[in-house]
Design a protein around this nucleic acid. Structure first.
Length: 826
RNA sequence: GGGGAAGUGGCGGAACGGCAGACGCGCAUGACUUAGGAUCAUGUGCCCGCGAGGGCUUCCGGGUUCAAGUCCCGGCUUCCCCACCA
């Protein structure tokens, strides 16, 4: 490919070099991972990609550095498993089918073929014999198997839930298909609708999922996001008496985190979806309540977003009794109360809750202060007073005068003693809705029999195969429902006519356990081999984008805990260490086709080779920070590649065998660079590793030019350079390793070690500070004593003007920094 | 509104509490060149100064310390996540 870009010309043919080494590694099976290898194991996993069709620069940014780290671990003596696969089910394949008439399977498998080739062009260590492709029956049958295990344990269940419904398409939309409240295909306004759905009971594991103590080392940010997402709140579930109303329940249960404010309740609010709404509404309010409920049920996402949070609601005409003070308070329904959180009902305390305050203000409801702010003058509040632990109970019966934090406990105890409620915990996380009314996913292995009800498909009838000959006209129903051959079956229980479940699973099910499959990817008798999984898992190092903080990473933790509880593994966390790389920008903005700023890696690879692209991505900045792509930047790296290419090719015939005057300095630079690269690569600090290697080559060039180095010191420098470069620039390192007369791949070598003595400086710079300011830098021997340092400092021409005639109050000597700090008094 | 991360030259970024600005880009000057958008050499935080040298400088303001980009307190700004969660 001829590029129009102004890219540096390399002194070798990078395309030829890449091809040569990729072919040789493949021919020699260099990347085959064996379970028999006696070295300690290291499982390095990069999040597998969705096969969208093209490997973009973001994929390279995720995969090239993690490949370098995996190679690094391998050269440190580990048997490294660093596999790759494809997250192959999902919506884009189905959209391609609808828009362009290509079967999802064809589209997906073509993309995988293409991306596999592009992935190979990076020169990664992936063992392709272990590839996992989730849309193949040999993989997704185990999704079904896990689903059935969860069903048996009551962890998979069916319930009615609101979904995104597009009235034009007459179908359910995934959240991703809803853009600004509209269907991405028809542009119609999306409404919510109740449908029977399958759920996985992740909330059973909420407390365990909140626990990050122990084995896992994850970024604080991700742990915080998950903690937030799970949203644990301690509070009190309190019931209000409605026995007089003749409803199916005698009380309304409400969850509150502020039971200390219960004497300030002036109304109770039910979510519009709450089953009691219809029952308690009085005849004269029925029309308005029904209209309100209907409107909020059909309320579009757009309306919800555009109301600017104005609180609306209607009175039901009914009253509930606050047992603490015997008061009758009106029951309202309002859509600011969520049916899906807590009990779907709240106690309205306008004086101490911002939302209730706004609601009461709008509808003229009483606002009664029951927690007095410090120094409160008794006047009405201008805003809700919400502080949790600095107020005093007032108008709270026998609790008056208590600090409200104490009031909280006292009131909670009182309520529990009276049997009016109990302390409890509420989570904002809900159970995982896994069913999708979609074709391109794992069929849920359930059969509906008119006699037996929902019947699980027996294990020996798995997989329930997704039929290929489906129609993809946008009829509004899942293609599976139109497929007579799939839909109609016999009941595994009674043998009578029955219908299959036509929903498929969320693709996050696939990625919740895929890491367990890599150790035994071809096993057909179980999802994974227990010994193989025990030997390799959990994953030692996981890397990928932070956008998966709350979905994939949480679901995978949940699955791991479930699989542990099934007795199949003995660990409960899937990924011990996690690293999130940043994003590559172009022109300081996100890349997008509409902006025309998309960087296509293939163009650069064909001109500069995989290694230059790898090196540049790693050199751009810290890996977790992402960076801005620039052609000038990659040219800088390419120039350096040329420089060390020339250094390695340099003739050494004119160098003495050993003992040249410049050897000490060169060996020092070599060993300093070795130390820095190894310690930095451990911590994913690729940018400073490469900087250290640049510093080394910056020393090597002039040293050779000056004719001051021996062959032995020079060859040591070259060897270290190539070995340290090998994880990051694998093709070039192997080529130059071969050209310098070495046998065997550079990647099969151990990393060099460094000698602290050789890395140490002979002379150090003594930094002299007077009152915190640097006044002189004096060259001193490395073993300088404190006495000598002090003498030299006080004798310095540059220091004396600041010390002469003044009292020296203090002298601090820091040997590790060869720094002397003198404090003088005026 | 809640949670998190981060603010360092013209730019990307370095810096166990200890010489701020490694490394690279860009720029300037020079060399080699028919040419330079190739290569090599030197310089390059800002201000004053011919120079020697001096002063200032890590978002702003305080504090701790012999010593603060780094630690503490208070602001400002940007980015990310979640957002009517009772």
């Amino acid at each position: 490919m001829v590029s129009k870009k102004n890219l540096v010309a390399l002194r070798y043919d990078p395309a030829e070099l890449d091809r040569k080494w990729q072919e040789r590694w493949a021919a020699q099976g260099l990347h085959h991972v064996s379970d028999d290898d006696p070295r300690p194991r290291w499982f390095a996993l990069t999040m597998y990609p969705y096969p969208s069709g093209d490997l973009h620069i973001g994929h390279w940014y995720a995969m090239a550095p993690s490949d370098a780290h995996a190679r690094f671990m391998s050269m440190r003596g580990y048997n490294v498993l660093h596999p790759m696969g494809f997250d192959a089910f999902g919506l884009p394949a189905e959209n391609a089918a609808i828009k362009r008439g290509i079967h999802p399977n064809t589209w997906t498998m073509d993309n995988i073929r293409r991306m596999r080739g592009q992935l190979r062009s990076m020169g990664p260590v992936y063992d392709w014999d272990r590839e996992v492709v989730t849309c193949l029956p040999e993989y997704y049958r185990w999704n079904q198997w896990f689903f059935l295990r969860m069903y048996e344990k009551g962890l998979a269940y069916r319930a009615s839930a609101p979904v995104n419904w597009c009235p034009t398409c007459q179908t359910v939309l995934a959240n991703e298909q809803v853009v600004d409240g509209r269907c991405e295909r028809s542009d119609d306004v999306v409404v919510r609708r109740e449908m029977e759905q399958w759920f996985l009971r992740i909330t059973d594991y909420a407390d365990e999922l909140l626990d990050f103590s122990g084995v896992i080392e994850w970024p604080e940010r991700i742990k915080a996001m998950q903690t937030n997402w799970i949203g644990r709140s301690e509070g009190v579930e309190i019931s209000f008496d409605i026995a007089h109303l003749n409803a199916s329940q005698k009380e309304i249960r409400a969850f509150t985190t502020r039971i200390d404010t219960v004497f300030g309740v002036t109304f109770v609010v039910l979510a519009p979806e709450h089953p009691l709404v219809a029952q308690v509404t009085t005849p004269e309010h029925r029309a308005s309540v029904e209209a309100y409920v209907a409107r909020s049920r059909e309320a579009s996402e757009i309306e919800r977003l555009s109301t600017e949070r104005e609180k609306t609601g209607v009175f039901t005409g009914a009253y509930a009794i606050n047992r603490l003070n015997g008061e009758r308070v009106p029951i309202w329904t309002a859509d600011y109360v969520l049916a899906t959180y807590g009990t779907g009902a709240v106690m309205g305390v306008p004086a101490h809750d911002e939302r209730d305050f706004a609601f009461a203000g709008r509808y003229g409801l009483d606002i009664r202060v029951v927690v007095a702010p410090p120094g409160w003058d008794g006047k009405p509040l201008e805003a809700a007073y919400v502080a949790k632990n600095e107020g005093t109970q007032v108008h709270s019966g026998r609790f008056d005068g208590l600090p409200n934090a104490e009031g909280y406990s006292a009131i909670a105890e009182h309520i529990e003693a009276e049997g009016w409620g109990r302390r409890t915990i509420s989570y904002r996380m809900r159970d995982w809705l896994v069913s999708r009314q979609r074709y391109w996913g794992t069929p849920i292995p359930i059969v509906y029999c008119p006699q037996c009800g929902a019947v699980p498909v027996p294990d020996d009838q798995l997989p329930v195969v997704l039929p290929e000959d489906a129609e993809f006209k946008p009829t509004g129903e899942s293609p599976l429902r139109q497929h007579a051959g799939f839909l109609h079956t016999s009941c595994p229980n009674c043998g009578g006519a029955a219908q299959r479940e036509t929903d498929t699973m969320d693709t996050f099910v696939d990625s919740s356990w895929y890491f367990l499959r890599y150790p035994s990817p071809h096993l057909d008798s179980a999802p994974f081999d227990r010994d193989a999984a025990a030997g390799w898992c959990p994953v030692d190092q996981y890397t990928g984008g932070a956008e998966h903080a709350t979905m994939h990473l949480l679901y995978a933790r949940f699955f791991t805990k479930v699989i542990r509880d099934l007795g199949l593994i003995d660990f409960g966390e899937p990924f011990l260490r996690l690293f999130n790389q940043g994003t590559v920008l172009s022109g300081h903005t996100k890349m997008s086709k509409s902006r025309g700023n998309v960087i296509a890696p293939d163009e650069y690879v064909s001109v500069l080779g995989a290694d230059a692209v790898r090196l540049y991505l790693m050199f751009m900045g810290p890996w977790d920070g992402g960076g801005d792509w620039s052609d000038a930047g990659i040219n800088g790296v390419a120039r350096w590649v040329n420089r060390f290419h020339d250094l390695v090719a340099r003739e050494t015939d004119d160098m003495p065998a050993s003992d040249a005057p410049g050897d000490r300095a060169l060996r020092r630079a070599t060993h300093q660079a070795t130390r820095r690269v190894i310690t930095d690569l451990e911590r994913f600090k690729f940018n400073t590793s490469i900087a250290a290697l640049m510093e080394l080559t910056n020393v090597m060039g002039p040293a050779a030019e000056a004719g001051e180095v021996s062959k032995s010191a020079w060859n040591e420098a070259i060897e270290h350079l190539l070995l340290l470069l090998a994880p990051m620039a694998p093709h070039l390192a192997d080529e130059l390793w071969e050209r310098t007369g070495h046998h065997g791949s550079v990647h099969a070598q151990a990393l060099p070690s460094w000698d602290e003595g050789l890395a140490a400086e002979d002379e150090l710079t003594l930094v002299v500070q007077v009152n915190g300011k640097v006044r002189d830098r004096i060259s001193v021997p490395a073993d300088v004593s404190e006495e000598a340092a002090r003498e030299a400092a006080l004798a310095s021409e540059r220091v004396r003007p600041y010390t002469d005639g003044k009292d020296i109050a203090k002298v601090v000597y820091v040997p590790s920094r060869t720094l002397l700090s003198i404090v003088v008094k005026s």
